[in-house]
Amino acid sequence: MRDKRMTPDEVVAELHDGMTIGIGGWGSRRKPMALVRAMLRSPLKDLTVVSYGGPDVGLLCAAGKVRKLVYGFVSLDTIAYDPLFRRARETASIDVLELDEGMFQCGLRAAGHRLPFLPIRAGLGSDVLRLAPGLRTVRSPYDGEELVAMPALHLDAALVHLNRADRHGNAQYLGPDPYFDDLFCLAAKKRYVSCERIVDTADLTADAPVQTLLLNRLMVDGVVETPGGAHFTSCVPDYGRDEEFQRRYAEAASDPEKWPGFVDRFLSGTEADYLEMAHG
């Protein structure tokens, strides 16, 4: 079987300007932050980012990587709003497609199933449709009900972070919620999973039920071992959210005077530098 191990920088080298990139996790939970940090170090630009947004979104916006954002919300969970995302919106520096959370999932499913759209009620009557005139409705051929025809959210690449994986791309979540990481992978042409630890295949189910194996190797093109790779978002049971670091992030991000100092200190070196500084 193929060995799909890569480094974060090798993953980012396979991404190109203008691509549509899906980022897994949810809010400030199990975000592939090491891969995001590698993107911040790269010259990538003009990306369309598709995310149930957390700090991944704010960081990529502030670094000028994002041309368009597709999202249902952006939040740090214990801190309601991400200051960098707010600034990007309030200065109109990014295009947006703002969706209902369920529509977002529906779009990923449609892409994963190679369908042009899937019907859903969510969105009807709200401003989701007014603000995105490209979204259409469809009439049920059975009873005539009008429904939103949620278009497929096709991704050029998906980036997700799980707890464990083997070198072939079978990957496992050990926390309570899979989020939508499998749907991101099914919706994408190239699929990259970072994980806390790469283990032998047999070890994946040594202490955990088989239902924790969210991704199998036909859904994955690259596997990256990045201990602490979701920091400062949560990656339970390996670690919870680093609330203190998140507060420091949000504080610096709220103040344009302080932000360059935060970037210098934490985001200008390697991943190892980051982890050392963040835990130091």
Partner: peptide, 21 residues
């Protein structure tokens, strides 16, 4: 204005789907 808000909030979240369902 949604194109250039004076104050960005959470986003639609699940509100459209909740209220229609």
């Amino acid at each position: 204005d949604h194109g250039k808000p004076t104050r960005q909030l959470l986003g639609f979240r699940g509100a459209p789907g909740n209220t229609i369902n």
